[in-house]
């Protein structure tokens, strides 16, 4: 069976093609870059619509397949930005109708975990999923992916991006902050907020901006911002690991590209004797292959949907989805 997956939850429009043995035949992504400021949902959606056809043609070409070879269409139904989700859903429905093949909606967060399990061979990890739109600590238990910790306000990627914008660094801010942080030497105390297993980054972000306005060295602030925010993320993951007594840790999402976060997570995993996994960058970021593989897993384990059930859900929770394949 060959599944084509469409990703479109935020700034990336992606088409991936996988077969039922887990071979990734194509993975094409088109990424919207705002001219100024952050992601504008409507502009991002228009970008997706404008790039959908090219992405599809490129994906089929790279997989050396004809459209008729596709047996199943999967798409990201949430969580994400409404206009983007609806655009990707429309593309998926049109394609499924035209090809007369089944369609299946996929939870974006779960897709990140499943591609990691496929590619890295992790069996049952505690996953820290960190991106511009999401921050969750997730572990599997009794048929569902349970959320052990999550942000109470803004995601970590958003915290870094908005901070960067406020101090005049270009979008996306994460890599800029990371680069400057490497040159920082002095740790400036910033609010460290862990509430049980949950996190909060809005106060941290505001305070970091204030320190900048008060004249502190930007490199030191970037360093301190990363150290404080990441320590909180790693602590919550560590708590989930201790609580669930699992033996594997996985880091994924766009912020997984950050080398310092990787190092901290690796040190934590080692201390607990757990194996540590980070999927390759291509699959940490949003892409169609994640969606295609997860849709294929669901379909081959009995999930079915009628077209009118393929509704998008901007705030679709990870722990609402029954995982039929585990």
């Amino acid at each position: 069976m060959i599944c084509l997956g469409i990703e479109g939850t935020a700034h990336t429009f992606g088409i991936g093609i996988v077969d039922s043995r887990g071979n990734i035949l194509a993975n094409v992504t088109k990424t919207y870059l705002p001219k100024q400021g952050g992601i504008h949902p409507r502009e991002a959606a228009q970008f997706h619509a404008a790039n959908a056809k090219t992405a599809l043609v490129e994906a089929l070409k790279s997989a050396k397949l004809k459209a008729r070879d596709i047996d199943l269409v999967a798409f990201s139904a949430g969580p994400g930005l409404g206009p983007c989700l609806r655009t990707a859903a429309t593309a998926a429905r049109a394609l499924a109708c035209w090809l007369d093949v089944p369609i299946i909606s996929v939870n974006h967060c779960i897709a990140h975990i499943e591609i990691g399990r496929l590619i890295e061979g992790a069996k049952d990890p505690v996953t820290l999923y960190v991106s511009g739109g999401n921050t969750q600590v997730i572990a599997f238990d009794a048929g569902r992916y349970r959320v052990f910790g999550e942000t109470l306000d803004i995601p970590i990627g958003n915290c870094l991006d908005v901070f960067a914008r406020e101090v005049g660094l270009p979008h996306p801010g994460g890599p800029q902050v990371e680069r400057l942080a490497r040159e920082g030497e002095n740790y400036i105390p910033l609010p460290y907020v862990v509430k049980g297993m949950d996190l909060s980054f809005s106060g941290l972000m505001t305070e970091a901006v204030r320190k900048y306005k008060d004249g502190a060295d930007l490199r030191d602030i970037c360093f301190s911002l990363q150290e404080t925010a990441f320590a909180a993320l790693v602590e919550v993951t560590e708590r989930a690991l201790a609580h669930t007594e699992k033996r594997e840790v996985m880091l994924t999402g766009g912020v997984a590209a950050n080398q310092r976060l990787r190092e901290m997570m690796r040190l934590m995993a080692e201390e607990h004797g757990a194996r540590f996994y980070v999927p390759p960058r291509e699959f940490c970021q949003d892409c169609g292959a994640n969606i295609a593989w997860t849709g294929l897993l669901a379909y081959t384990h009995g999930a079915r949907q009628r077209l009118e059930e393929t509704v998008v859900r901007q705030r679709w929770r990870t722990d609402e989805v029954d995982i039929l394949w585990r």
């Binding site: 859900r313 901007q314 705030r315 929770r317």
Partner: peptide, 17 residues
């Protein structure tokens, strides 16, 4: 209210899709 404030809570979702 804190629960509703959370990032992954269904609310105000539009009926049109």
């Amino acid at each position: 209210e804190i629960e509703r404030r959370g990032r992954y809570v269904p609310r105000e979702e539009r009926t049109w899709t």
